[in-house]
Design a protein around this nucleic acid. Structure first.
Length: 132
DNA sequence: TTGTTGACCTCTT
DNA sequence: CAAGAGGCCAACA
């Protein structure tokens, strides 16, 4: 009973069947990512830290990998690494889509790096409330 | 089934 | 100051 069943067969890493209140690490990542305001960006570590552990930053990126097949679509393009660099750009289709989306939102990017990253940075632990 | 990889981050040497 | 290794959780072979 206390054993979750992997839904890898359905290609759904985190989206559990309706009625499931147990939020997985992935779902939390998707939830936070969807809360990212337009024109803002965040980092994997920030989301990971918001979830509790900063070391799970890798999982955040991994979760983003499935953000394309989940609904609603997760703005993975607004999530970058700690350096403000579009590390996951290569995983977009096309890769330049990520930069274009960010630029369209008013974010300046140079050399796959976000300019004024500190200003565009959006901290979930500050903007987002744990009560919600 | 176990082992390795992965859009990362932080600490230690 | 720079480079290397460790660590998290989940999916894939």
């Amino acid at each position: 009973m206390a054993k979750e069943k992997p839904i890898s067969k359905n290609k759904l890493p985190a989206i559990l069947p309706g009625g499931k209140k147990e939020i997985s690490f992935f779902e939390q990542v998707y939830d936070v990512a969807r809360c990212i305001p337009k024109g803002r960006v965040t980092s994997y570590g920030a989301i990971a830290a918001f979830l509790g552990t900063k070391m799970s930053a890798r999982m955040v990126g991994w979760a983003m990998n499935g953000s394309f097949k989940i609904k609603p679509k997760v703005p993975a393009h607004r999530v970058v690494n700690r350096n403000g660099m579009l590390s996951g750009k290569a995983h977009f289709s096309p890769p330049e889509k990520m930069q274009q989306l960010l630029e369209k939102e008013g974010i300046t990017i140079k050399d796959d790096q976000i300019i004024n990253f500190a200003e565009k940075f959006w901290d979930p632990s500050k903007e987002l409330s744990l009560d919600q």
